[in-house]
Design a protein around this nucleic acid. Structure first.
Lengths: 193, 193
DNA sequence: CCTTGCCAACCATTTAGTAGGTAGATTTTT
DNA sequence: AAAAATCTACCTACTAAATGGTTGGCAAGG
């Protein structure tokens, strides 16, 4: 029933993550899905409707992944590492983070979309801050920094690493950055080479 | 003499950094500079010519800034902090890094532009790796990590923080991330709250 | 029978880019 | 030094293609 709509979301997400919001057109999307341009408007009247639905779906997928991480690991550093792994797929497929792509288009974006993107990042920061705070209490995360600051550092590093290594170094370089990031967060990091 | 051309570069850079490469048009640029659309083609025949010139000018400005940092500070952590400060202007003005904006548009970009952007990042990574290696030798930077990996971590974190805090937390949040980043690079970080 | 999903055909606007020309400076030739 | 040729920077006016979006209709299915 919702088959076409779902397919539209999938293909549109790929297009946006590959070329940006302004960089893809309804014509491109129609071609990708094998449907006529006018039919897209039936499902998503305007382009910002589509963008909004895209961010919502993306956010939900991440929410599910975060819940799985909490269920699947105990120690905070492990959880952060698992969180970082979520970005890896993008590097492998040569696709940016949907919300990073949208965020960077800033000015040109409908206000509602910008707000949704902001909420996406805020949710991640809040989740990470909670994980890190727990880790500090358990003694697995260095306790000399505000967990909220560390949470922002984590999101920034991973978003930046995706941006960078998608273009430059590929999955291996990304994984190297992720390892260094997690190592820097752990309590009592070894100091000798 | 080169006044118009320079003005075109300035305004075009602002437009791209605010809205992306696909997100601005020659019409926008013409309006910003106060010239007719056709006259832009006189200076930059195609849009990718313009993009290429943009990246070149941006890269040169950064090169100059990097040289100044080397001249103006001795210790590696200070140099990294000064490097991070270069990104701050973008957060304050609500503009992304030119090369991050271009990098994210990936697929949709002319190949020549993509290559120039890649070179931009590679140059920064190389510069940072050299600074960090020197710092390790001098004992100011933690020596348990490959300087090349740390260099990538630095660029990723700063690009990501610019992306994020331009949208979310503003200059203060960016500075917080920068402080945490530099602190994590320093040798013998204090472990107690 | 009327909603859902899709379509062809259309629309106004915008896109990057072109054609051709003009006014003023600079250079080259006489 | 005067005249001729060339160059620079800009213009108006245009084009073909693409943009997001609309209209009205048609077929299938509850």
């Amino acid at each position: 029933m919702r088959d076409t709509r779902a397919e539209l979301l999938i293909q549109a997400e790929t297009l946006v993550r590959a070329s940006g919001y302004a960089g893809f057109s309804y014509a491109d999307l129609a071609a990708a899905v094998g449907i006529r341009k006018a039919s897209i408007h039936h499902h998503f009247p305007t382009k910002s409707d589509l963008a909004l639905a895209l961010v919502a779906a993306y956010g939900e997928r991440y929410d599910a992944a975060l819940a799985e991480i909490v269920a699947g690991s105990e120690r905070a550093p492990e959880r952060i590492a698992a969180y970082g792994q979520l970005y890896l797929g993008g590097v492998e497929q040569g696709l940016g983070c949907l919300c990073a792509v949208l965020a960077i288009e800033g000015e040109a974006l409908p206000e509602t979309v910008r707000a949704a993107v902001a909420r996406f990042f805020e949710a991640h920061i809040a989740w990470l801050a909670a994980v890190l705070e727990e880790g500090q209490a358990a003694g697995t995360v260095r306790a000399d920094r505000d967990p909220a600051v560390l949470a922002r550092l984590v999101v920034a590093t991973l978003e930046g690493a995706l941006l960078l290594e998608r273009l430059l170094g590929g999955p291996e370089a990304f994984s190297g950055t992720l390892r260094a990031l997690v190592a820097g967060l752990e309590a009592a990091a070894p100091d000798r080479a």
